[in-house]
């Protein structure tokens, strides 16, 4: 049963990867990377159970905690750039 779920997650990973490769905008790629992150958390948890090694859940926990940081950095990146653009227009 875990196998069915992990195959569903893997299929979603493939779909997200397709989205990341197709684009069209850069944000779609960020979105795909984000989806990939949460799918990795789920895949790790499910395979930990599939293998009967629940002590490896630490890894999924690490990802669940750290995942958000990358996307927040993206937000800050765009924010800085739009501010810089505004400054350039002011001058």
């Amino acid at each position: 049963m875990y196998i069915v779920v992990s195959i569903a997650i893997l299929a979603t990973m493939v779909l997200a990867l397709t989205r990341a490769l197709m684009g069209p905008s850069v944000y779609d790629r960020v979105l795909a990377a984000n989806v990939f992150g949460t799918k990795t958390v789920m895949l790790l948890s499910v395979t930990a159970f599939l293998y009967g090694r629940p002590d490896f859940l630490d890894l999924a926990l690490a990802y669940a905690l750290v995942n958000m940081v990358g996307i927040l950095a993206v937000l800050e990146f765009f924010q800085k750039r739009s501010r810089r653009k505004a400054e350039l227009e002011d001058d």
């Binding site: 905008s25 992150g37 993206v74 937000l75």
Partner: peptide, 10 residues
């Protein structure tokens, strides 16, 4: 939160 940040960035 990540979704919010992404939508906001876009």
């Amino acid at each position: 939160t990540a979704t919010y940040a992404l939508a906001n960035a876009a």
